[in-house]
Write a protein that binds this DNA or RNA. Structure first.
Lengths: 234, 234
DNA sequence: AGTAAAATGTGAGTCATATCACATTTTATT
DNA sequence: AATAAAATGTGATATGACTCACATTTTACT
């Protein structure tokens, strides 16, 4: 981790691209920008650890971050992937002394803006609209978490793999003539850790889908989904 | 389902026992009470179905409700159990036309108070404190959902069973001389559907725990946990 | 109280996935 | 460009939970 000055945001307001803040007046955004701390992390670095007690809001300015939990045997479960313009850690702003229940790990080199709880308390009081925006944000994530839980509870491994493909396609896919081009932000192993299967199983299931013509792989980082309906209908 | 008048709440303000509302002045609570709809459901009835598009806040006045998702094969995954004084459906107040992603089913005969989205919009505007309270509520549930997801991702069936016992103990257990008396609001099958295992596996694992002296069962509805530390340490 | 229905316990067998092992490919680093 | 490190693919095997079946117990209902 590397602390950098406010240079990033002076001319290029990071919070402007964050939906939680972007309905504010420019002057109000400037006020908030003054409270923001800036950090940079290299790929693979931890932004926070499960169990940490510091409460702050993380704004991803550039890059991607995964939120994960690790069980005793060290197995990772990815909960969410956060891209630039998105936030995380927001629910700890409303609970006192509750330790983080996840770790955040940089998937790429990232630039992060942070807001500490005390400042956020002030901001929420002064701009009640933001509360509502955050409620929308948390609500959406809640539905995501519950869908993930349902997916993980299935014994059907195929549908776990399909689920991850659908999730990634929705967030990182671009449609071209009924096909979806998916630029993967994560490795096969991480796809497995998101789906709740082993790396080997993920590898085998993707091969099978390619055999059937449902998907095509281009190297390791791109997947073309030929038949998204097949994945959805399953 | 059975619609009842406001009788329940005239003399006995249901929202008084709800943390989201109970810091308001009495007059304010009365104002809100006038907007409240009242319903009663028999055990087993659905309060809402996954896919429903009506958005309302449910307040459980008496009884217990489970929130579940069902996959295509009909397998149930219980997401949460809501007791009297608690609310659910709150995250749909902040999203437009988003269908429910769970079904709610009465575990006992229940009395429910409801607030429709339009009224809640007014209430949130007039009493901004409530937004903050709801944020706390949703944040807590978010952590619960993520913990559930992690639990379901484990291949270790023992730890899934332990997880459910710990969760239930925390909510429905009473401590007596280092032992925890747990009055179960759900059946073995539902415990299994919460843990993400089959009924048979749940049954066998509980028998094993009883063999080892970790727990004792008293009929089907009471479990005495002799060694909670064993479950926590695992 | 008596009967039907639901919930629970438990044995036997199957099978899909985790695990282990290792070759191969891709990516990162100097 | 060369080398090391990481990621990926794939075969063989084992294992443990799911499935099915049915006896038994508990609960609900008239």
């Amino acid at each position: 981790m590397h602390n950098v000055g406010c240079l990033n945001c002076k001319n290029n307001l990071c919070i402007r691209k964050v939906s939680v803040f972007n309905t504010l007046e420019y002057e109000d955004m400037l006020e908030i920008a003054r409270m923001i701390g800036h950090r940079e992390y290299k790929k693979g670095e931890f932004l926070c650890h499960e169990g940490d007690k510091t409460s702050m809001l993380f704004v991803v300015n550039s890059g991607k971050v995964k939120l994960s939990k690790f069980n005793i045997e060290g197995k990772e479960q990815i909960l969410n992937i956060i891209s630039d313009g998105e936030i995380f850690g927001e629910y700890y702003l409303f609970m006192d002394f509750e330790p983080y229940n996840f770790s955040a790990i940089a998937l790429t080199d990232v630039k992060i803006c942070t807001l500490v709880k005390q400042d956020m308390d002030y901001i929420l009081l002064k701009y009640p609209k933001i509360s509502h925006k955050i409620l929308q944000e948390v609500s959406k994530k809640m539905i995501g978490a519950e869908n993930l839980a349902q997916n993980l509870s299935t014994i059907n491994t195929d549908s776990k793999v399909h689920y991850v493909l659908k999730e990634l396609a929705q967030k990182y896919g671009t449609e071209h003539e009924k096909k979806i081009r998916l630029e993967l932000p994560i490795t096969r192993e991480e796809m497995a850790n998101y789906a709740g299967v082993t790396r080997e199983t993920m590898s085998r299931k993707l091969s099978a889908l390619e055999q059937e013509g449902i998907i095509e792989t281009v190297g390791n980082k791109i997947i073309i989904i030929n038949d998204i309906e097949y994945l959805e209908d399953y």
